[in-house]
Amino acid sequence: MMDRLTIDAHGLHKRFGDLQVLKSVDLTIRSGEVVVIMGPSGSGKTTLLRCLNLLEQPDAGTVTVRGRTVDCSVRGSGRGQAGLVRDIRIRTAMVFQHYNLFPHMTVLQNVVEGPLSVRRLPRPYALEVGERLLERVGLIDKRDEYPAKLSGGQKQRVAIARALAMDPEVVLLDEPTSSLDPELRAEVLQVLKDLARRGMTMVIVTHEIAFAREVADRILFMDNGYILEEQAPQTFFSNPASTRVRSFLRLMSGTESQPEIEATG
């Protein structure tokens, strides 16, 4: 199972104005893998994650998800291209730092929107799936509440359930705990650990070192638009190859609860 490629991205370039955010990044994610992306802010890690879901369209490169390839240098939104992009988005669910729940819908409605609108599941079946997922993230008793009534940790757990409801090949998580108080982080991280144990393929941008050490199969360190280092967690944390990673980790362990690190190189 571990050899099946879920994501295969090649030569991703992305520029915002004068700023070259991604400089030819290659990345493969195997089925069942949990990959953590770390790095200073401004290093391009969030942009890379968003490119995998094509929320950000790379200026050049290809993204292949389970055999479906989008060539990002093809501009414009021709029918075929738009269909391919949608196809890839359906297979790659996204969890955002600020949750982005739909505030006008209840918790359960949030979770079943994708299954109903995109996957076109029959309503009773979608509701059944939605309730099962809410049970899994421990929020079934909140099914009829609106997001405004939930704590940050609860909102993020709903967002994770909403992502899983798309039955994705991979879940992409963009700093899922960064806007949470330390007490609320634990409940979200617990849900993610549970997912990892069940073999869910995940790519997680995070600053949570202890969590990364525990669940990651592989850690990518990004700096200045490149993947600078790619290691198993044991090696990454105890014996990183580059001095850049060493100084980053030193800073992080001093300020683990304060993830904003100045980019120095």
């Binding site: 996204m94 955002f96 982005n100 994708g114 609108s117 995109v118």
Partner: peptide, 27 residues
């Protein structure tokens, strides 16, 4: 309407029309 709403809906592959009708217009 918060930009994040478009992103969340787009990220799950909803069509433009569907995003407008289900997510954006009600808000």
């Amino acid at each position: 309407v918060d930009k994040g709403q478009w992103e969340a809906a787009n990220s799950m592959g909803m069509t433009y029309q569907r995003i407008l009708a289900r997510i954006i217009f009600p808000q």
